[in-house]
């Protein structure tokens, strides 16, 4: 039921995203344009708004699912990929690849995977193994380091790259077209297995010992889920830059919708809705300013973050 409602909300948001922009379309006009195909009336819709919508939806799904998976694996509602440095490392890798003339998606993946390896090495404890809080804190340092590195790379590239700099530091859907949709489709096969991981996440949340006694191979599952989530998060970053707060906010919201249970599919839908809403605001409120979408995701995500922080404060055990 909640899933159906969420899907309906997403469809409504998508319709709004097609209608919004410098020239607003009515519902009838949107339908006409959609069915008339890329020629004629629907040209603007088909060449600009539709690919932008699809890219945003896929990126949002990736970020939302990845956020929930990391928050569950690390047992901390703040431990999303943008807090523990994965998205920043992916952005760094993508920018470095772009400057070397390589495909940014490959760079983002290399960045995210090396971030995971680095975190594992930095946070490893001789006796305790990999403690979640160590991963989270080392990730915090890594995020700052990679952010500074990206900024330095962009400054090195010289002036005239201000818009590119904004894209890679705050995330934007400006300039997303059909080639980006093509890249985005690569992420769907990686996203699908995460959607089936609801049971596994549920049991992992009971604690490692209990999960083990239920017959799960905890270490392998953790590594596999973490790697998959890192890859899709990095893929989303390579599409539209590190859209802030999407991964962070989608997890808690989806848990609230699912009565406290981790559900990656729901989190993906929430993430997709979140990005679409932010993009509607970005194009609807100030269409001339061309502000990056990431600014609006941050503004919507901020209140959610405050709620999470407040809960953490009142919950003394974590």
């Amino acid at each position: 039921m909640r899933l159906v409602l969420m899907l309906l909300a997403l469809v409504a948001l998508a319709g709004l995203a097609l209608a919004a922009g410098r020239s607003w379309l009515g519902p009838v006009e949107v339908m006409q344009a959609l069915f008339s195909g890329p020629e004629g009336v629907g040209r603007m819709l088909w060449s600009l708004r539709l690919p932008r919508l699809i890219t945003g939806l896929v990126a949002g799904m990736c970020l939302g699912a990845a956020g929930l998976v990391f928050q569950t694996l690390l047992r901390n509602p703040l431990a999303s990929p943008d807090v523990i440095g994965l998205t920043q490392c992916a952005a760094f890798g993508a920018v470095a690849a772009l400057m070397a003339g390589l495909p940014p998606m490959a760079g983002a993946w290399v960045g995210a995977v090396s971030a995971i390896i680095l975190l594992g090495w930095l946070a490893a404890h001789p006796r305790e193994g990999l403690a979640p809080r160590a991963v989270v804190l080392q990730g915090l340092g890594l995020a700052l380091l990679a952010g500074a590195g990206t900024e330095a790379l962009i400054l090195r590239a010289g002036d005239g790259n201000a818009s590119m700099a904004m894209a890679w530091l705050t995330g934007t859907l400006n300039g997303a077209g059909w080639p980006e949709v093509g890249h985005a489709l690569w992420l769907v096969p990686l996203l699908a297995p995460l959607f089936t991981a609801r049971r596994i996440l549920d049991r992992l949340e009971l604690g490692d010992d209990l999960a083990r006694s239920l017959g799960l191979r905890v270490g392998v599952l953790r590594a596999a889920l973490g790697l998959l989530a890192a890859l899709i998060a990095a893929g989303a970053v390579s599409l539209c830059g590190p859209l802030g707060f999407v991964a962070l906010a989608a997890g808690p919201v989806s848990r609230w919708l699912a009565r406290g249970r981790p559900d990656p599919f729901l989190a993906a839908l929430v993430g997709a809705g979140f990005v679409t809403l932010a993009d509607v605001l970005a194009r609807g409120l100030a269409p001339a300013a061309l502000l990056p979408t990431g600014l609006y995701t941050a503004l919507i995500g901020a209140p959610i973050l405050l709620v999470v922080l407040r809960r953490q404060m009142s919950d003394k055990s974590s």
Binding site: L78, V83, V136, T170, A289, L291, L295, L305, M313
Partner: peptide
């Protein structure tokens, strides 16, 4: 503290960049 602080800082800084860019 550092985790909550980092979240709070990123929140403030995103508003800062919003205002500066507008």
């Amino acid at each position: 503290l550092p985790l909550a602080g980092a979240a709070f800082a990123s929140l403030c800084l995103s508003v800062v960049s919003f205002v500066v860019l507008m």
